[in-house]
């Protein structure tokens, strides 16, 4: 048995933790009653989840370029998730008012 290097341990812990957040977000998406609380579950949990996964994977990066790309993926996903949450919430508001 060879010892596992510290970065590898951290990668496993961080990505594992990130997956837990994804799981929690998915459970929230499935179980919460309306669009707004579902969005809340998704945006909070997934952003942290992806951040933890990105952090864990970043520890395995071999070059600064790879590191920058992982960071870019995370930032873009974060911005996109925030935007989509806003748009979906507004659409849901309009929908509710129309049915209203």
């Amino acid at each position: 048995m060879s010892a596992i290097a510290l970065p590898d341990v951290l990668t496993i812990v961080l990505t594992g933790l990130g997956l837990l957040f994804f799981l929690a977000g998915t459970v929230g998406l499935l179980r919460f009653p309306d669009t707004f609380s579902r969005l809340h579950a998704l945006t909070k949990a997934d952003n942290v989840g992806l951040g933890l996964v990105a952090l864990g994977v970043a520890l395995q990066a071999e070059t600064w370029g790879q590191l920058a790309r992982i960071a870019l993926v995370w930032v873009l996903a974060l911005v996109a998730a925030g935007l989509v949450a806003q748009l979906v919430a507004r659409a849901a508001l309009v929908d509710r008012r129309l049915r209203g």
Partner: peptide, 14 residues
């Protein structure tokens, strides 16, 4: 000035 416009200013350079 909404979120979509903000996104549309942020994303194109990238």
């Amino acid at each position: 000035g909404g979120v979509l416009e903000g996104m549309a200013r942020l994303l194109p350079p990238v």
